[in-house]
Amino acid sequence: MSAHSCCEMEAPQPLGVSGAAVQTQIMSGGYDLNLFASPPDCNFLCSVCHGVLKRPVRLPCSHVFCKKCILQWLARQKTCPCCRKDVKRKKMVHVNKLRKTIGRLEVKCKNAEAGCVVTCPLVHRKGHQDSCPFELMACPNKDCTARVPRGALAEHRQHCPHGAQQRCPLGCGATLGPAERVRHNCYRELRNAWTQRQERSRTLVLGLLQRMRKVYRTTSLIRRQLAQLGDFLEEDDALLLGGPQEEAEATPEGSTEAEGWGTQGQATL
């Protein structure tokens, strides 16, 4: 039985396992049909997961399945899902040629629903995904759990509440957190900074004036004290210099009088 005829068969359901459980176990085997830009050929479909073959393997009975799908199937039953023939895992063969053919099929970006319109071969899908602007990316800021499209990540980081503080990009010099950057106004910030600087300057000038007045009062007091000390020293100098001079002036007069009295006595005698 060919892969084409097998794909039209519905995979048998193992005993004791519900349909929902089987569907949950095997749906992740092949590629989703909605991934492809145009409906793929029926020969490229896996009859277990009904998706496009992913890592296809062929059984000895010539039926082809996704490797993951058939391994999950054989873990429960040892027969081919299509023809029920006994299967040994050692007899499975990788179909690399079919894998390369499927790899050339055009697929849509996995972010097509988000707005990406790019299509590319299946083998290049991962490379596009690594640069797709619609790919969801985790915010690199610590403690932030947001996931945003790659194209909007830079803007998110500017407004992320967990982001680090940054300088204002307009050059006002302010250091801003994410929440502050949203409502930041350079003109208002500069005006407030200028007002604060004027207040500080006014306070400094008033303090300097008070100190100058205090220094002036102290200097005036010292000058008055020095003037008083100078007057006091001049009076002491005058007293010290005036005493000996008066004594010297008094001595000659006494001597003259003594001499006069001596002459008069001699005359009397």
Rank of each mutant, 00 (worst) to 15 (best):
residue 5 S to V: 11
residue 6 C to F: 08
residue 7 C to T: 14
residue 9 M to H: 15
residue 12 P to M: 03
residue 13 Q to N: 08
residue 16 G to L: 11
residue 19 G to C: 00
residue 24 T to F: 04
residue 27 M to K: 13
residue 28 S to Y: 05
residue 29 G to Y: 00
residue 33 L to S: 10
residue 33 L to M: 15
residue 36 F to K: 06
residue 36 F to C: 02
residue 37 A to N: 10
residue 41 D to Y: 07
residue 47 S to M: 14
residue 55 R to K: 14
residue 57 V to H: 01
residue 57 V to T: 03
residue 62 S to W: 01
residue 63 H to K: 01
residue 68 K to G: 07
residue 71 L to W: 02
residue 71 L to D: 13
residue 72 Q to E: 12
residue 73 W to E: 00
residue 73 W to G: 01
residue 83 C to F: 07
residue 84 R to P: 00
residue 86 D to E: 15
residue 89 R to Y: 04
residue 89 R to L: 14
residue 92 M to V: 11
residue 92 M to Y: 04
residue 94 H to E: 15
residue 95 V to C: 15
residue 96 N to A: 15
residue 97 K to N: 15
residue 98 L to Q: 12
residue 99 R to H: 13
residue 104 R to I: 08
residue 105 L to A: 06
residue 108 K to E: 09
residue 109 C to F: 03
residue 111 N to S: 14
residue 111 N to K: 05
residue 113 E to K: 14
residue 117 V to M: 13
residue 120 C to D: 02
residue 121 P to W: 02
residue 125 R to N: 10
residue 125 R to F: 03
residue 127 G to E: 15
residue 128 H to A: 04
residue 134 F to Q: 05
residue 134 F to M: 02
residue 135 E to P: 02
residue 135 E to N: 10
residue 139 C to Y: 08
residue 148 V to E: 10
residue 152 A to W: 08
residue 154 A to H: 07
residue 154 A to I: 07
residue 155 E to H: 09
residue 163 G to C: 06
residue 164 A to L: 13
residue 165 Q to G: 08
residue 165 Q to T: 14
residue 167 R to Q: 09
residue 172 C to P: 02
residue 172 C to M: 01
residue 173 G to Y: 02
residue 178 P to R: 01
residue 180 E to H: 02
residue 181 R to G: 01
residue 187 Y to N: 09
residue 187 Y to R: 11
residue 188 R to H: 05
residue 192 N to K: 13
residue 192 N to Q: 14
residue 201 S to P: 00
residue 207 G to H: 06
residue 210 Q to P: 03
residue 214 K to E: 12
residue 218 T to C: 05
residue 222 I to L: 12
residue 222 I to R: 13
residue 222 I to A: 08
residue 223 R to T: 05
residue 224 R to S: 04
residue 227 A to E: 12
residue 229 L to S: 09
residue 230 G to T: 10
residue 232 F to N: 12
residue 234 E to L: 11
residue 235 E to M: 04
residue 236 D to K: 12
residue 237 D to Q: 11
residue 240 L to V: 06
residue 242 G to F: 07
residue 242 G to S: 14
residue 245 Q to N: 06
residue 245 Q to E: 12
residue 245 Q to K: 14
residue 247 E to W: 06
residue 251 T to Y: 09
residue 252 P to M: 03
residue 258 A to P: 02
residue 258 A to V: 08
residue 263 T to G: 06
residue 268 T to E: 08
